[in-house]
């Protein structure tokens, strides 16, 4: 059944995609095909394959427990916060926090994950910034 839900989602999505592609404003010069036809073609392929999936659904994905979903959701939030705070806190601090968090959620003990996070982010900073000269987010404190 969930395979069918996927089909329906992409069916709707393909229609929206074609609709938004048709809203593309044309320039006064254009080649014979123009910028809309290729997206129409893609949208058509998506539409047809969605119908096939709806008609002949195959698998039923195994969904995890709600608890797992919340856990995954929190991980996504942490990653987003990482991306947002990177320019403010700087690379080393943000990475230490994010690394510790992920390591902790994947089963490390709290102390262990904090040590790992701090050591690893310093190591990354050393390797990529000092040795290889890559520009990392500087942040408020400059590292």
């Amino acid at each position: 059944m969930t395979d069918r839900a996927l089909g329906i989602f992409f069916l709707v999505f393909s229609v929206l995609y074609i609709y938004f592609a048709s809203k593309t404003e044309l320039s006064f010069i254009s080649d014979p095909l123009g910028p809309k036809k290729f997206p129409y073609l893609i949208g058509f392929v998506m539409f047809v394959s969605s119908i096939f999936i709806i008609v002949k659904p195959e698998i039923k994905p195994k969904w995890s427990s709600l608890y797992k979903f919340i856990e995954l959701f929190i991980l996504v939030i942490v990653l987003i916060l990482y991306a947002q705070f990177l320019p403010i806190l700087g690379f080393t601090i943000s990475s230490a926090i994010a690394t510790s968090f992920i390591s902790w959620r994947l089963g490390s003990k709290v102390i262990e994950s904090i040590i790992f996070g701090v050591v690893f982010s310093l190591l990354l900073y050393f390797l990529f910034h000092i040795v290889l000269g890559l520009s990392l987010a500087k942040g408020f404190f400059g590292f």
Partner: peptide, 9 residues
Amino acid sequence: DGQTGVPRL
């Protein structure tokens, strides 16, 4: 769009 320069999607 590379050919005509209009923003798309």
